[in-house]
Amino acid sequence: MKSLLARTGLTIALIAGMALPAAAHRTWMLPSATVLSGQDPWITVDAAVSNDLFYFEHVPLRLDGLQVITPDGREGKAENQATGKYRSTFDVHLDKPGTYKVAMAGGGLMASWEEGGQRKRWRGTAENFAKEVPANAEKLQVTENFRRMEIFATAGKPTDTALKPTGKGLELVPVTHPNDLFAGENATFQFVLDGKPAPDLEVSIIPGGIRYRNELGEMKLKTDKEGKVTVKWPAPGMYWMEADLEDNKTSVKQAAKRRASYNTTLEVLAQ
């Protein structure tokens, strides 16, 4: 049991924080700044699950699986991690010039079946599926998901090394640099699924500050055949961008569908 927990710890943590019904809540990370100057810049990041953007009103985002990618593509540190009632926080020391990516990614398989009239549930990886889920499980239902959440911050000149996609799940490939966004200008992003362009994908962009207005202000865009969308930023501020899809490229044949999702928080500066 212990080893199972250890192996699936990430998945469980992610599910606790992230794998909520898509329509119910929004998961997000909010950086204190995205464009920085100076000798010793830091950012602090809030992370939460909520209805309204960007307010702490539901549950904190669990920080398991948090990753910092430094401008040279190496693993960095998320310091001073803490989780409170409504939000988690952590700091990133931008001790090298260039662009940092902070990511939380993960997922796996979820299975449920009946055993002697009892409902059994399991979460884990494709490798463990055959070992841990009985081959003859009755009324077996298996779903697969992979979620990714990212934010970006740049000290000095924007760079691209940390932005390279991993090739797993749904990801954003910036055409316009994510830390070079200005109100009234266009920005183009490419979405890729397992490293390949994701065409016809619906992308939702919602400005923060929902509490103080009546309309959601959502912009719905669709990726072209290269997986690209272009948005013209209507106003400065923090925006939450999200996309998800379902396909049948599952890692075990018992899973009928795979769900992949991506979200990021982008800062748009005033002219």
Partner: peptide, 22 residues
């Protein structure tokens, strides 16, 4: 001290974007 004044250069955000950050 320590060039600390450079922390706020990005507040001149057009200049920072066009030149300062380089």
């Amino acid at each position: 001290r320590d060039n600390e004044g450079t922390k706020w250069l990005k507040d001149m955000r057009q200049w920072w974007r066009r030149s300062g950050r380089d």
